[in-house]
Write a protein that binds this DNA or RNA. Structure first.
Length: 279
DNA sequence: ATGTCGAAATCGTTTCGA
């Protein structure tokens, strides 16, 4: 099962890119962030005509998440209220459309657009920290159902020095501060692991390059788009890569897609393979 | 390097967010 995440920075502006990309990779599931479109205007026809099911949770101008899936999209849950009914912060977070989750091919997929945070002294930064704490409560509720879990999206956080082009200068700042990193680690707990780091230990693998300051030309990137898997999925994962070439296209998103390939549902050993187990 | 994008309103130039 091929699963991808991509912050497209407006689905309507990037529609041609996304369609071409789907033809190239033919993923089972593509999770989008920053669709920047109200649900009534989401362009679902182009995806349906390729055989994909579509589910989305968006708003005008900002935020917005979507699921583009070859499998049925079951038990769709929108926002934090998809899991939390009486949470103290539900009112506070419901107006920004950043969370969509569904059961797809028997995997609970949680597609996230984590708040950017703007700057350490900003109200948006404390919003980001509180939002991550709410996400932790959200996942605790989800865990009661004991589903295989994949959470992915734009996390707007680089967890380690090797995830930033210039850690000496940037560590401690926005997207690399201790409080953000700890809040994300608290969300992940012991249950979820970054599948990209299972396969790749080196630095210089980025998923986002700022449009400003010639960041792409200087390869000044960050790895802030992540795919986290539970142990059952980790042990069946075959690869995880960033499709960097997408950032080099004309009029690109500032983010590149990230893909994970999982042997799912797991192929079981057939009877013939046990015949040779004589001990 | 507040140097570029995308979207919307204040409408074709400015603002906000990233």
């Amino acid at each position: 099962m091929l699963i991808a995440t991509w912050n497209v920075n407006s689905i309507r502006t990037r529609l041609d890119h996304v369609e071409r990309w789907l033809d190239e990779f033919s993923p089972d599931l593509l999770c989008l962030q920053e669709t920047k479109v109200d649900d009534q205007f989401f362009p679902k026809k182009p995806f349906e005509s390729k055989g994909y099911k579509v589910s989305f949770y968006g708003q005008k101008s900002y935020n917005g998440v979507a699921l583009i899936s070859r499998h049925d999209i079951q038990d769709v849950r929108f926002g934090f209220s998809g899991e939390l009914k009486n949470d103290k912060d539900i009112e506070r977070f419901n107006d920004q459309k950043r969370v969509i989750s569904a059961l797809i091919n028997e995997i609970r997929v949680v597609n996230l657009y984590v708040p950017n945070g703007s700057a350490l002294n900003s109200e948006k930064y404390s919003y980001k920290i509180e939002w991550l704490k709410c996400l932790k409560r959200y996942l605790k509720q989800q865990a009661l159902r004991d589903e295989p879990l994949c959470i992915l999206g734009d996390f707007n956080i680089a967890l380690e020095a090797r995830d930033i082009h210039n850690p000496e200068r940037l560590t401690g700042g926005i997207m690399a501060s201790e409080a953000e990193r700890q809040a994300l680690k608290d969300v992940l707990g012991e249950r979820l692991k970054d599948i990209f780091r299972v396969f790749e230990q080196e630095k210089n693998h980025w998923s986002w390059w700022d449009y400003r300051s010639g960041a792409w030309a200087r390869d000044s990137g960050w790895r802030i788009d992540h795919i986290y898997l539970c142990e059952e999925l980790i042990k069946n994962a075959k690869s995880c890569v960033i499709d960097k070439k997408e950032r080099a296209m004309e009029k690109p998103s500032d983010h590149a897609p990230v893909l994970v390939d999982i042997n799912w549902p797991p192929e079981e050993l057939d009877d013939s393979s046990t015949e040779f187990n004589y001990n």
